[in-house]
Design a protein around this nucleic acid. Structure first.
Lengths: 342, 342
DNA sequence: CTGAAAGCGCTAACAG
DNA sequence: CTGTTAGCGCTTTCAG
């Protein structure tokens, strides 16, 4: 025989929660009265409302949101979903915080998922979100094509990747211009051999940034200085070491995102003393590194806020033509990009 | 008259999605057959199943998860929620990533919310989560008391704060010991006047870390060197500057979390040259600061994974007595904590 | 192997 | 001001 100590044992097999019927019975009223009290008691006698409220707290009743939205057709689930590459990346974490804040102001709760640049996983997440009938979806899409179906059932806003003709709002950053600006900055300081460290070539932002790099270099572009497919700081560090250890090493490095910049900084510190670095995305304490890190800073909070506002405007009935908001990334000069080659 | 270009205009007023009835009619079968096909067709003739599947894809049907869990009592919503202080904080972002990973392996989707140390907000979030009938909840609780009700309806795991007698599993970090270890490290390098920079005194982890600081100092404890209530890097920097600018400034600083450490590093760099620093929580590129930052590193991924595993074990039926897992924070010696006072 | 009826918890649409 | 009836989309139960 097993003895359970209710105080020390974790409550299992949760008792089935009280329903509206239970509350109605306890208060001696009909279910509709309870429903009315819960949804902002209009047209309920104060004394009755009070009795109902008392029964609610006494029974510990809580509205079943799923059941309620099942019946009222027009009112949505009041949930939006956020689909990013990886929530653990500080950039997306900051974006998520901004989206949550905006959602909260509209009374929405937020689901999230990290696709990790995996198509299968992205599909599963979108599937899970739509099955849960989210009212809106803010996403960093990997494969634009698979989104066709999803669009028919949920309002979507893309972030970081263009709509490709799909009827969706999108929030982008002009990474091409920014990268060009960053590489030009290095050229202006006398560098001619500038290494490029980038993420997967399949990612739109990676393509844009590489394009900016090429545009700045023009004739001087040398494919031997380009390393792509870098998904984390460790692989970026390896790639940077490789470039720095080659026969004719670059005198400067352009790192195409935050994780890659971290790897580049490590590599330069350990085997590329004096190599200039310009990174895409700002990093915490970048100003306290030695040398202080020159970066092209995106504003994840602004991106998230903008995307969320576009989404909620749509949910509030805005049916104007689709919009594409392009935000800038600004060059923050701190030191690492201003050293001249020997 | 308004002309809508369906290609360029954002799809509004989503057409009501096809139901199981629609699929059944389209396939010329009853709804139950459709239901059976969707939930792993056992006992359905292959040819019939095929016709149903065809209708499903043709109509673009998607199961309404809310409706389905409404009827089947025992099967839950397959959603868990994560309640943290602030998802934008890299520490919680990493934790969230770990929780999501674990959830995905169990087929669960994750809701999240940031309470931002605001009781009202925490209550609203818990309310929203339970109304959505989440099966589980991983939370960094602000006010342990308000959780009593929630516990009756959902399985909860606490992170970063103790259960206080509530029947909940919890995952903690021994911040007292870690802080004591960190401060002792400074004492061993000759520091006697060590400033303390901490978060709100109401937060359990902040209390623990302050206690560790006091334990290490013993008789030498001086309340004048203690600054609390620091909620972000900016306020931490101000507080640190104040300590460093005082008549008898400390020769070392103990920063009680990641955000505070960032502020402390800034303050030291600008007006406390040579002041030793030990920070709680590791920071990206901490090893590349000058001097490299000595920290007490917690492992957010391990914390998140552990919490999620405890939760899913409970959801899978584990009804053993409640557990309290205590993880360590390890001293990582890098340089900023080893400089000796002049 | 398949379908019809009942009902999950709630709200819309009517009655009183 | 309040209650009754129907039914949201689905699964359970039970009868073919």
């Amino acid at each position: 025989m097993t003895v359970h100590d209710p105080g020390a044992s974790v409550a299992r097999s949760k008792p089935s929660r009280p329903t509206m019927r239970d509350v109605a019975d306890a208060a001696g009223v009909g279910v509709m009265t309870v429903s009315r009290v819960i949804n902002g008691a209009v047209g309920v006698r104060p004394s009755t409302a009070e009795r109902v409220r008392e029964a609610i707290t006494r029974l510990g009743y809580q509205l079943n949101h799923a059941a309620s939205t099942l019946r009222r057709r027009h009112h949505g689930s009041m949930v939006i979903a956020l689909l990013v590459d990886d929530i653990a990346n500080p950039f997306y974490a900051a974006l998520a915080g901004a989206v949550e804040e905006e959602a909260r102001e509209h009374g929405f709760t937020v689901l999230f998922g990290s696709a990790k640049e995996d198509l299968q996983r992205e599909r599963e997440l979108v599937q899970a979100f739509t099955a849960r009938r989210v009212d809106g979806l803010i996403a960093v899409p990997t494969d634009t094509e698979m989104w066709r179906d999803a669009l028919t059932s949920v309002t979507v806003v893309f972030v970081d990747r263009p709509a490709n003709g799909l009827p969706v709002d999108s929030v982008l950053v002009d990474g091409r211009s920014a990268a060009e600006r960053g590489v030009r900055h290095l050229l202006e300081h006398g560098h001619t051999r500038i290494g490029y460290l980038g993420d997967l070539a399949s990612i739109w932002t990676a393509q844009q940034r590489l394009q900016g790099y090429r545009d700045a270099l023009g004739e001087a572009f040398d494919p031997e200085l380009v390393q792509q497919g870098l998904r984390d700081a460790a692989s970026a560090e390896r790639a940077a070491r490789e470039l720095l250890g080659s026969a004719r090493p670059p005198t400067a490095l352009f790192a195409a995102n935050d994780l890659i910049t971290i790897g580049a900084v490590r590599a330069v510190a350990e085997c590329g003393e004096g190599t200039a670095v310009v990174g895409f995305d700002d990093i915490v304490l970048a100003d306290r590194l030695s040398p202080p890190l020159t970066v092209l800073a995106q504003d994840p909070v602004e991106i998230g806020t903008t995307a969320a506002r576009l989404l909620f405007a749509r949910l509030d009935g805005d049916d104007t033509p689709r919009r594409e908001v392009v935000l800038p990334a600004t060059l923050v000069v701190r030191g690492s990009g201003e050293s001249r080659p020997e």
